[in-house]
Design a protein around this nucleic acid. Structure first.
Lengths: 148, 148
DNA sequence: TAGCTCTTGCCAATCGATTGCAGCAACCAC
DNA sequence: GTGGTTGCTGCAATCGATTGGCAAGAGCTA
């Protein structure tokens, strides 16, 4: 994905912040840029490390506060993985994660892919599952072949 | 479930500990009793609070160390829920959890119930999912009816 | 520009979880 | 039993992740 479209996306998000009464700051811009650039999922610490290459004085607490603001506005989601780690990603890029325990690769899975699961839970258990991103752990295709 | 069968189960687990070279102690007995009594899932803090009613001096660190021992022996599983909390339960009672965000009720779901999901991931993505207990969040049947 | 208020950097506090250590207790051998 | 070895435990310190307080600084409006 070309760089300028990322920039556009960052600007769009900044505009949404401003529209909701927040201020346009360098710190927020930098944090959002990292989230957009990674495209997938990042930890708060990943963001801090990355941002501090350009803004060494930017504190982790600012990262957390920005993430909280973005979460309140529904711009990013926080996901707790099944291995205990916590990651963030853009809400409009909602997806499940297939995490390989051996090589660490993370494959994305569209939320819609588990539509059958939603229906099953609703019909059999009356349970309306939230479309919350899941972090599923196991063996990816290549590691599975390599181990067999 | 009658109390004496819980006692039996606690004794069985203690026997397994002893058989693997561990010592038979009151602390471990008490921690195991809580896990068995709850039948479902408990947090480390739940266990500590419960155990300390009988053994006020028993420390959380002992709870964690006991849980770690039980985990090494494959007697209990640790599960990270999608809301970030961590719970433990007996391995022979492995199951998914349907957690209601409104009333807090937790419904159990047999691991086998998601067999289709496993197959789907394997066939479509080549991903071999571990049968890891999931904590799914949403609305339970009664809260869903009440809100409609 | 003045001035209000939100943000931020810095730092301490918190929270869940873990670890080092010294004393105690379980188990084994006699 | 009794003594000795070694594992367990309580306590306090620690660690990583996250949050809160506060004063200085920066963004926005008039």
């Amino acid at each position: 994905m070309p760089e300028h479209s990322h920039r556009d996306q960052v600007d769009q998000i900044m505009d949404r912040l401003v529209a909701s009464g927040k201020r346009r700051t360098m710190s927020r811009q930098a944090v959002i840029k990292v989230i957009v650039d990674y495209h997938g999922h990042v930890s708060a610490d990943d963001i801090a490390t990355q941002v501090q290459k350009d803004f060494p004085s930017l504190d982790v607490s600012t990262v957390y506060r920005t993430l909280e603001t973005l979460r309140e506005l529904g711009i990013v989601d926080r996901v707790y993985f099944a291995d205990g780690s916590t990651v963030y990603h853009l809400s409009d890029h909602k997806h499940h994660h297939l995490c390989c325990e051996r090589c660490g690769a993370v494959q994305e899975l569209p939320i819609s892919a588990l539509g059958n699961l939603e229906r099953f839970l609703l019909e059999e258990y009356g349970f309306q599952n939230h479309q919350q991103p899941l972090g599923l752990f196991g063996l990816c295709a290549s590691c599975r072949q390599a181990s067999s």
